[in-house]
Write a protein that binds this DNA or RNA. Structure first.
Length: 618
DNA sequence: GCAAGGTC
């Protein structure tokens, strides 16, 4: 009997289906000489400090550096505190029984670092010695699965991948557990002050943005605005220069030859420029982009959206949600026309679905090379029935995005008119010539400036037009907006670096903070710790968050770059570099950060008592 | 009491 173990039930079911195995048992599926079983993500975790004898939080325990780490069954929180998850225990027992009966194990956890770790932790925890092979596939289609099983790899080929995963796991424990205890103890141990490779840089981003915003001093500046009339159609133009000094603006303002000052045709058209601009459709959604859209449209938190999606996934309405890919392969694309056909009866999208059936589909989101463990989020084709309003809303975002992604580009005409009247003025206008993908949701554009005209009249160079109104506008520079869930998720993808270019952002996916599957949890952790809170739609630091930030802001643990440098080393380990060297470095770093925090937290105790002043001055 | 990672 061969045992196939997948990362999650849905994958095991898919594999069993391809083999024609139909014997549904408790915790596995049997048939054709195979048993297909599964984990539920990580079933095992590194044991907590008390299992190495570090009972209670004590200064003399620090730094805690276990010679050998232990594994423990995943715990859940109940009213009696942390207890072993009974479902996990049960599944582990099933896996153990199957491993014991097996002649060979086939590892079918997700093809990546954590997938490898999920299996190896189970294998070593159960003290299993059976030989194992690795299924390594990047698409879940029948053909890809069959091909993968014909090409099983020796299990030992992935030893270095396991090494890198193992180092990631232990390093996070060492730095997180020690730093957390060190800071909490030195601050007087009145509450948990958690720190970690991901959560602390995230907190730092929120705090530094908050402080920057609070300390922002708006600068006044002046602009001149005019309104012109072309055969009854009015349009606006603003001065090409901004003025810091009001008097300078006033001088030019007085020179504007408007109708009110006795000039019937005082605006001279110097130049007219009209250029077409093409906008490709957006890529399909991955988890993060969908969480951002749901937050912008509906105000859902990242965590709420993830839960709604998980629910839709369990009802088989959408594909696997915790994906970091915004692409699909050609095999999946082959099923897209059918998905679109099914939407012709949809109340909002029916017309666009019908249109798409008549034109070639845009293939921007089709790229097998950019699909990793899971492809972009798509509807499955199952017909939803009586969804709750919030589930329907998320489902519609998945469906709507699919229609957009395969739609045609949007073509606009961008017009710029230069006008002279004492000084120079510019009128901008954008007209959509062919809406393309934008006709699916009919959204207004985000980056529309208020000086933009909805449409501009046809004017000719040299023409003289009446200026019916003029104004000296007083404006203020604005601070960067506070983070909300959408902008924070976006920032986490690129470790806080601001990169607008979609392709470039995508290239940085592997060096982000956290992973698609964990980012919602990071935000919730910071809230649970009372480090940040939601204020309307913004995420703002609390007193406590700012106080902790103040202590750690210059430390390595608060820098997003820490993840980047670890990732680089972990990748080297995956290619065969020394594990011992990395462990020694982490051990040294753990010692130094623990030492520093034990000292630095001393001044924190009194700060944690809220005072009436503005928290930003801490 | 604590990390980050995965998923029901």
């Amino acid at each position: 009997m061969k045992i196939v173990i997948a990362e999650k039930p849905s994958v095991a079911r898919e594999l069993a289906k391809v083999f024609g195995a139909t014997g549904k048992k408790d915790g596995y599926i049997e048939g054709k000489g195979y048993s297909f079983t599964w984990a539920f993500g990580h079933l095992l975790q590194l044991a907590p400090p008390q299992e190495y004898g570090f009972i209670g939080w004590r200064r003399q325990h620090l730094p805690m550096l276990p010679a050998k780490f232990k594994l423990a069954i995943r715990k859940i929180k109940t009213k009696d505190g942390l207890v072993e998850d009974p479902g996990v225990r049960k599944q582990l027992d099933i896996i153990k029984k199957l491993f014991d009966e097996s002649t060979e194990i086939i590892v079918a956890t997700d093809a990546g670092r954590e997938g490898e770790l999920i299996f190896r932790y189970i294998y070593y925890f159960l003290k299993c010695k059976k030989p194992f092979k690795r299924l390594w596939i990047s698409s879940q289609t029948d053909e890809a699965i069959k091909e993968g099983f014909r090409n099983l790899k020796p299990g030992t080929d992935y030893d270095t991948l396991f090494n890198s995963a193992h180092c990631r796991s232990e390093s996070d424990w060492l730095v997180g557990m020690n730093a957390t205890q060190a800071l909490s103890i030195s601050a007087g141990a009145r509450s948990v002050l958690s720190l970690g490779r991901v959560q602390t840089p995230t907190l730092a981003m929120i705090c530094s943005r908050y402080i920057e915003t609070k300390n922002f001093v708006p600068q006044l500046y002046y602009q001149l605005g005019i309104q012109l009339d072309k055969d009854g159609q009015l349009f606006k133009a603003v001065s090409t220069v901004n003025f810091n000094v009001k008097e300078e603006a006033q001088v030019l303002f007085d020179k504007i030859e408007d109708v009110g000052s006795g000039f019937p045709n005082g605006g001279k058209i110097l130049d007219v420029e009209a250029k077409p601009r093409k906008e490709p459709p957006p890529l399909l959604h991955d988890l993060s982009s969908l969480q951002q859209e749901a937050n912008k449209r509906k105000g859902y938190t990242a965590d709420q959206t993830l839960n709604l999606l998980q629910n839709l996934y369990e009802s088989k309405l959408v594909s696997y949600p915790r994906t970091g890919s915004r692409y699909i392969g050609d095999d999946v694309f082959a099923g897209v026309p059918q998905l679109i056909t099914q939407l012709t009866t949809h109340p909002d999208f029916g017309k666009q679905a019908e249109f798409l059936m008549t034109v070639p589909l845009n293939k921007r989101s089709v790229n097998a090379k950019k699909v990793t463990d899971h492809h972009a989020i798509l509807p499955t084709g199952e017909v939803p029935y009586q969804l709750s309003a919030d589930k329907q809303a998320v489902y519609d975002m998945v469906v709507g995005r699919m229609l957009e992604a395969f739609h045609q580009e949007c073509v606009k005409e961008v017009t710029k008119i230069t006008i002279e009247s004492g000084s120079l003025f510019i009128a901008n206008g954008t007209v959509i010539r062919s809406a393309g993908w934008r006709s699916v949701l009919n959204d207004k554009e985000e980056d529309k400036k208020d000086e933009d005209n909805p449409s501009l009249p046809k004017v000719k160079k040299g023409e003289m037009l009446p200026i019916v109104e003029k104004a000296l506008l007083e404006k203020q520079t604005k601070p960067k907006p506070l983070y909300n869930e959408a902008s924070l998720l976006k920032a986490l993808e690129t470790s806080g670096k601001e990169i607008e270019d979609e392709e470039l952002r995508y290239a940085m996916k592997d060096s982000g903070l956290g992973t698609p599957a964990t980012r919602a949890a990071i935000i919730e952790t910071l809230i649970t710790r009372d480090y940040i809170m939601r204020e309307k739609r913004n995420l703002v630091p609390t007193f406590k968050g700012l106080a902790v930030y103040d202590v750690v802001k210059d430390q390595k643990i608060a820098q997003a770059e820490l993840t980047g440098s670890w990732e680089k080393r972990l990748e080297e380990i995956r290619s065969g570099a020394s594990v011992a060297d990395f462990k020694a470095e982490i051990s040294e770093y753990t010692k130094s950060i623990t030492h520093e925090l034990l000292a630095a937290g001393a001044g924190l105790a009194e700060k944690l008592v809220p005072k009436k002043e503005d928290p930003a001055v801490v």
